[in-house]
Design a protein around this nucleic acid. Sequence first.
DNA 1: TTAATTAATGAAATAAAATTTCATTTTTTC
DNA 2: GAAAAAATGAAATTTTATTTCATTAATTAA
Lengths: 282, 282
Amino acid sequence: MNILEKITNELDMLSKSERKVAEVILASPNTVIHSSIAALAKQANISEPTVNRFCRRLDTKGYPDFKLHLAQSLANGTPYVNRHVDENDSADEYTAKIFESTMASLELARKSLNANDINRSVDVLTQANKISFFGLGASAIVAHDAQNKFFRFNVPVVYFDDILMQRMSAINSRQGDVVVVISHTGRTKSLVEVASLARENDATVIGITSMGTPLSKECSIILSVDVTEDTDLYMPMSSRIAQLALIDVLATGFTLRRGSKFRDNLKKVKDSLRSSRFDRKD
Amino acid sequence: MNILEKITNELDMLSKSERKVAEVILASPNTVIHSSIAALAKQANISEPTVNRFCRRLDTKGYPDFKLHLAQSLANGTPYVNRHVDENDSADEYTAKIFESTMASLELARKSLNANDINRSVDVLTQANKISFFGLGASAIVAHDAQNKFFRFNVPVVYFDDILMQRMSAINSRQGDVVVVISHTGRTKSLVEVASLARENDATVIGITSMGTPLSKECSIILSVDVTEDTDLYMPMSSRIAQLALIDVLATGFTLRRGSKFRDNLKKVKDSLRSSRFDRKD
DNA sequence: TTAATTAATGAAATAAAATTTCATTTTTTC
DNA sequence: GAAAAAATGAAATTTTATTTCATTAATTAA
C-alpha cells in the first residue's frame, strides 16, 4: 500500500500537530526520506515525539520504519498507472504513456494468473504428443510467437490463424494432444467452436483468455490474463503483450521441467543460427 | 540505479569481509531493510564499521541511506533486472521473475528511445505510399503484429517473414515507400541486405534494432530498442515485447497525426468484427 | 459555564543506532 | 622476509530515535 495515499486518507483522523507533520511530508516527500526526525519536527514546528506518534498512527514501527515505507512509495516505477493518450500529446508524452500502461497491464496480468494453473499447463504441455496454438487477429501473433518458441523444443507444434485450418486441426486432434486457444475477449465464435471441437475429440484445451467468457467454459485449463485494455484507439495493445509474457512463462516452465540436458539442446538451436548472422566485433 | 544490481556488479571490487556483507544482503534483502547495522554485522560475522564501509563503497552516505536505496530497489514494481530464473524455481517464482524482467526491459527500452526519431518515423509513415514490415524469427511476430495494426488504418501495408519475398519486395520498392526492418541483434545478414536494397531503390528504411549494429548502418531512421536480453534460456523474450510496445507507439502516433475523423474509422473497423463475436451480457 | 476528564503535546531523560577514531591484524609489494 | 599498505574490529563518540512524564489544550457532563 502506498503510504502517501494512506496519509491523505487518514488526514482526518490525525490531531492538529500530526496534521502539520503530514502536510510537510506530502509537500516534499523526497526531502523527508533524507531528513532526521529532528529535522522534520523542526520543519513542521512540532516536537520530535509528535513525529514519532504520527508514524505509529500509520501502522509503522517508528520513524525509520516510516521512512522505509515512504522511500518505497517513492521508488521509481511504482506508479505504473494507466494513463490515457491525449489528442495533443507530444511524441515524448504518448511514448511514455504507452510504455507505462503496458507495464501497468503486465503487473495486473501477473496478479490475475494462478500458479497452480500454470503448473498444470506445463505438466500437460510437457506430456503432449502434439501442441497446437490457435488465435485470430492480434491473438494470432501470440499463437505465432508460441509456435516459434515451442518449435525450438523439438516437439510437434503447429499454429494456425485460419479458421478452417483451425477447425480441421481440432477435429483431427485426439487424446494426448494439447490445444491452446488464445483470445482476449473470449467471445470469438469460431474460436469457441474450435475449443469445443477439440474437447469433443479428447484433446486437452488450455485457454488464454479472461475468466467467465464463453471460451473459458470450453477449456480444460484457463489461464486468465486480465488486463484493462485501453480501447480508446480500438486496437488490442496491452492484452497481447501480457499474453506473450505468459507464453514466455509457459516456455520457461517447459524448459525447467525438462531439465538441464534439454537446455543444452536449446543452445545448439541458437548456435545453428550463427552462420546467418554477422559476427560481433566485441 | 538498482542497488542490488550494483552490489552484484561491484562484488569483485569488495574486500573479503565486505563481500560477506554483500552476500548476506543479496541472500535476503527483504530482511536487511528491517535490520540494524549491528544485526547485519552479526549476521555476516563481521564488525559494524565494515558494514558502514561497505555502504560508502556503494556511494551511499551510510547505513541508513543504504537501507533507503535498498528499500527502493525492493519496492513493488521497481525493475529488478537481475532476477534470473533458477533451476528450482516454483511456478509462482518463475512467473514473477519473467513478468518483472519484462517490465524492467520495457523501462529500459523506453529510455533508449528518442522522441525525435519517433516523430520523424510517424511523419514518414503517415506520408508513405506503401508500408512494408520485415522481420525473421521472433521479429517476424513483431512485423506480423505491425501489419495487423496498420492494416486497420486502411493504408497499403504488407509483412513478410520469408527471405525471398522480402528481397523481391525490397527490390520493387520506390521513393515514397517505407520499409520497416526489425531485428533485435541487427546482425541477420539477409535482413541487412534487404535494408540495403530498399535504400538503393529510394525507399525510406526505418530500423527497429540496437544502435551500432550492421543493420543500423543501412537505415534512414533508427529506432533503438535496447534491452538486456536474458539469454539464459536462449530464446528472445524481452526484446520482442519492447519492439511490440514500440509498434503501439508508432501506431498511436499515426492515429494522432491523422486526427479525430480518422479515429472514427478505426471504430468502424472494430465494429465490423462484432458479428463474429458472442454478445457481452453485461 | 465550569469542573472533571480525556487527549494532545513537548522537555528532558534514556535508549538505540550509527559513525569515528585508532590500534591491531592481514595482505601485498619490493 | 621486511616495509608499506590495506583491511578490520574494539571502544569511544556522536547522532538519532524513543520513552517518560509533566503540562497544556480540548472535550464532556453536570
